[in-house]
């Protein structure tokens, strides 16, 4: 079976909201430039920003940097709101050529249409998730912590199904 599911180590996550993504000082405070189009990402030195709405971004960064970034955003003239949501979610890495098949067991969108280096917010088996595609065969899925056991069970069921299919094919 050519897909693996792994829960990743905790990471810092910020929910950033601002009316003006091009405001002065914002790039310095965040350490990267915010992407403008919904679904696109900007990645620089361990930080990754995904545009999830017209005025909303999810930024992942090392957990220790969260407080400093929030403090830096507080200093800006242009209001920008950052909330530390690191502990709200946990991340599953779904890796392998069959990853998209596994995801499509729960996602109503066409996950193959998400390009490498892009991402989106959607649902997986009715659970709100954020998908980040890091490569053709690697997708990260952020899930609210309280939903994680349910999502893990569904993913494991999916893995079992894929394994059974493979067994049938081999027979």
């Amino acid at each position: 079976m050519s897909v693996t599911v792994k829960e990743l180590a905790p990471v810092g996550r910020l929910s950033v909201r601002t009316e003006r993504a091009d405001a002065e000082g914002l790039v310095d405070a965040l350490g990267l430039e915010l992407p403008q189009r919904i679904g696109t990402r900007a990645t620089t030195g361990g930080r990754d920003a995904l545009c999830v709405g017209p005025d909303e971004w999810t930024v992942t960064l090392p957990e220790v940097d969260c407080a400093a970034v929030i403090a830096a955003l507080d200093e800006l003239d242009e209001p920008a709101c950052a909330v530390d949501i690191s502990h709200r979610e946990t991340t599953f890495a779904i890796e392998g050529p069959d990853g998209d098949t596994l995801l499509s067991m729960g996602c109503p969108i066409d996950v193959t249409a998400i390009e490498s280096g892009a991402g989106t917010r959607t649902v997986f088996a009715d659970v709100p998730v954020t998908l980040w595609r890091d490569g053709p065969t690697l997708v990260r899925m952020d899930v609210w912590r309280s939903f994680a056991p349910q999502v893990r069970t569904i993913l494991e069921d999916g893995l079992g199904e894929l394994a059974a299919q493979q067994k049938l094919r081999a027979a």
């Binding site: 919904i38 709405g53 989106t120 959607t122 709100p128």
Partner: peptide, 8 residues
């Protein structure tokens, strides 16, 4: 409302 998307 695009609840599980852009939220708008």
């Amino acid at each position: 409302r695009h609840t599980h998307g852009c939220g708008r």
